[in-house]
Design a protein around this nucleic acid. Sequence first.
DNA 1: CGTATATTTGACTGACTTCAATGTAAGTGG
DNA 2: CCACTTACATTGAAGTCAGTCAAATATACG
Lengths: 225, 225
Amino acid sequence: MGLAAEDVERLDSIIKRSRPLHRGDHLFRGGERFRSLYVVKTGSVKTYAPSEEGGEQVLGFHLPGEIIGLDAIDKSCHACSAKVLETSAICEVPFQRFEELATSIPSLQHQMYRLLSKEIGQDADMLLLLGKKNAEERLAAFLSSMSSRLSKRGLSPTDFYLSMSRHEIGSYLGLAVETVSRLFTRFQEDGLLRVDRKHVEVLNLPALEMMAGSAPSSTHKQRSN
Amino acid sequence: MGLAAEDVERLDSIIKRSRPLHRGDHLFRGGERFRSLYVVKTGSVKTYAPSEEGGEQVLGFHLPGEIIGLDAIDKSCHACSAKVLETSAICEVPFQRFEELATSIPSLQHQMYRLLSKEIGQDADMLLLLGKKNAEERLAAFLSSMSSRLSKRGLSPTDFYLSMSRHEIGSYLGLAVETVSRLFTRFQEDGLLRVDRKHVEVLNLPALEMMAGSAPSSTHKQRSN
DNA sequence: CGTATATTTGACTGACTTCAATGTAAGTGG
DNA sequence: CCACTTACATTGAAGTCAGTCAAATATACG
């Protein structure tokens, strides 16, 4: 990270470590005042915006090492809600104190810029996915992303458990639950995966990544706007 | 903005003002090294990612007062390209120098965080649009957005020229050109707009905003995942 | 062990895309 | 100034992917 040892210590001193949270617990809800950023240590979290008519739009899934709440700095109150998907350890970083600290540590400042910028870049990838890719490519992209993010944390890139439901995956990818389910079945039939409920074994990662990279599998390509 | 006069002056001193740029000029291209942020003074700019097969995905349209390039801070090279849509005045802000300056002006630092965070929030809105809204709602949202952004700059919220083509609008909204064209026609038939080529007169802004707010107009609602 | 919830599977439908053709504006050069 | 070219926009017809509806399983949980 390029932080001196004493700086790391100072940063460490403002971080709050909570006891483990459990499935269904909220880190924050839409409308609440923004006070802290949250870092996932273990487990997983989803962020979502309650859309009209009770339905919810899933905005993202957050795995270990990832940060939650960056979108709330601007409005100083949360526009979305964050809910824990499985028993998780989450660190809380009070933003006000963090900002004061960052003022005196330029390299921390820079890291923060990069972090915010990275989030914007990832959103652009997602925009591309939702704007141009078909159902098959979307699920392939989702699984590829999970694979690479998990492996960054030293976990298996080809064998993992999905903590979110098919419905949540569908909401995130802009697809109906049924479509997600059918695709899992098809991917399995095609020998790309072995799926057992939440458990996924990726049998052909390169093929999955190829598919995700917006190379339509079939001869006809839709949505080539 | 909450900046002292002398700070404003310091900020002003690092900004480069270029001569007017013209339709088709690039601010930067994907792959180039990131050096500066760009602020639109007058005119408009589109950012886009060249997708495979020559097609391009439009990522955003940038109007006066808006900032371009925030996504490149992280990777220190541009992931997308930025092209001027009409004769425009653009300011260049060398990021390195900006960052140094921000270190000594905490309120500028804070503004920068807010700016980056706001961008993330807007991307989330767009995710929701692409994930859940139908064609009609998308175009309504696009027009509402244009209207409100223009009026923020003191321009008419109900009478404006679109500097981008129907094709670019379609790409941005994840729709085919033909769909966009048909919707313009329909909106006009329904008395929401008067359209003449690039010129748009909004006749019923509240109705348009209502439509954009994801309240399906017809009785049947698709994509209610 | 029974009830609620999640997932899967099938049949059908429709919104939007694709294909195709025409219309309109803008630009070029003789 | 007017053919010619090119790009953009509109409109119609037809096809398809993914959504909706419906029902059967499978799983979770009190």
